[in-house]
């Protein structure tokens, strides 16, 4: 696996302008971590599959999405912390 360049932590819904702004800046070695309302991107957006995508399990469950077959690796808070440590840069959208 390539070194993780930028981790994008995205907590906005797909209807928020920052959501598409985030997607527009993704590079090939980046990853997206969806938190809070960002996890709704998994049911609404097709563009997310291009880079490695993670989603917080607790936020998926709250929104009734934990059993869906989603294109993201589910993580908990400690795994999110690990990702931020692995990444060269972190952007919180």
């Amino acid at each position: 696996m390539n070194q993780l360049h930028t981790l994008h932590i995205l907590n906005k819904t797909p209807d928020h302008p920052r959501f598409s702004e985030c997607l527009g800046t993704l590079g090939p070695d980046d990853a997206v971590a969806l938190t809070e309302n960002g996890v709704l991107g998994l049911v609404a957006s097709k563009a997310l599959g291009l880079v490695q995508t993670y989603a917080l399990e607790s936020d998926l469950s709250a929104r009734g999405l934990s059993d869906d077959n989603l294109e993201a690796a589910t993580i908990d808070y400690s795994e999110l912390v690990n990702l931020t440590l692995q990444a060269e840069r972190v952007i919180s959208w």
Binding site: D15, L40, S61, L65, S66
Partner: peptide
Amino acid sequence: TGAGVNWLRKAQDTADIEQKSLE
């Protein structure tokens, strides 16, 4: 409407975010 429709999804489990279930 909009992102609001996500209120209507079944099986919301809010225990881990420590909020009351809007469902």
